[in-house]
Amino acid sequence: MIWYLVTAPHAYTVSEHLRGDWGAALRKRMVVMPYELLTRMPVMPQGSYIFSDLERLDALPRKILGRVWARLQDSGCRMLNHPERSLRRLELLDALHKDGRNDFRAFRADTAGEPWRYPVFLRQEKEHSGAQSPLLHDLQSVREALLQLVLAGHALSDLLVVEMCDTADADGIYRKYSAFRIGEHIVPRHVLFSRNWMLKDMDLVGPARRAEILDYCQNNPHESELRGIFSRAQIGYGRIDYALDRDGRIQVWEINTNPQIMRAPSAYPESVRHFHQAFAGRYLEAMQAIDSDGEESTDARWSDLARALVSKGGRRSQP
Rank of each mutant, 00 (worst) to 15 (best):
M1C: 05
E295N: 06
D158S: 13
P115C: 01
I261E: 03
D171H: 11
W197S: 07
M41T: 10
F104T: 05
A267I: 00
S157V: 01
I213P: 02
L65R: 09
E223S: 12
L159S: 05
S178V: 08
L96R: 06
R85S: 11
G100M: 04
S48M: 01
L284W: 05
R209H: 15
G281L: 08
G313E: 12
G76L: 04
V31M: 00
L226D: 11
M33N: 03
W197L: 11
E296K: 01
A211E: 14
L26M: 15
L147S: 13
R89H: 14
P221G: 09
P119M: 06
L199Y: 06
W253A: 13
I240L: 15
P221N: 10
K28R: 13
S231D: 15
S224G: 01
N196R: 13
L37A: 14
S86P: 07
W302Y: 15
M164C: 09
R246V: 03
M164F: 15
D201E: 15
L26T: 01
G76A: 05
C77T: 10
D166F: 04
W116N: 04
P45I: 09
D241Y: 01
N256L: 01
S133C: 07
F121H: 04
M41I: 08
A152M: 07
L159R: 02
A59Q: 12
P42A: 11
A95C: 14
A152G: 11
I261M: 12
E285A: 14
M33K: 00
R263K: 13
W302L: 10
L54Y: 01
L135S: 04
R40Q: 15
T7S: 14
H17Q: 04
S133I: 08
A170C: 09
I240V: 13
E84T: 14
D201W: 02
L214W: 07
G314W: 02
E144F: 00
S133Y: 08
H128T: 12
K312F: 07
A211Q: 13
P134Y: 01
T7K: 07
R209Y: 15
K98Y: 05
R181N: 07
R40K: 12
D169M: 08
L136G: 05
V205Y: 11
P134M: 01
P265M: 03
L214C: 00
F180L: 08
A170L: 10
D203H: 02
Y216N: 06
R210N: 14
G76I: 02
A280V: 05
P42W: 05
Y12L: 03
Y177D: 08
A278I: 00
Q73G: 04
Q260V: 00
R301F: 14
H190V: 05
V187G: 09
P115V: 07
T167L: 09
R263F: 09
L60M: 11
L90G: 10
F104N: 12
A106G: 13
T111R: 12
V120F: 08
Y12V: 09
K126H: 12
R62L: 11
R273F: 04
G153T: 09
P134S: 12
N196C: 08
F230C: 12
L204F: 05
F180D: 06
D304K: 05
R307C: 04
A170M: 07
K98V: 10
D171T: 09
K63A: 15
I2E: 03
F121S: 07
L160C: 02
E295H: 10
R232S: 13
M44D: 12
A145G: 07
I50Y: 00
G153A: 08
L305F: 03
S129T: 14
P45D: 10
H97T: 11
P119G: 08
R249P: 01
Q218Y: 01
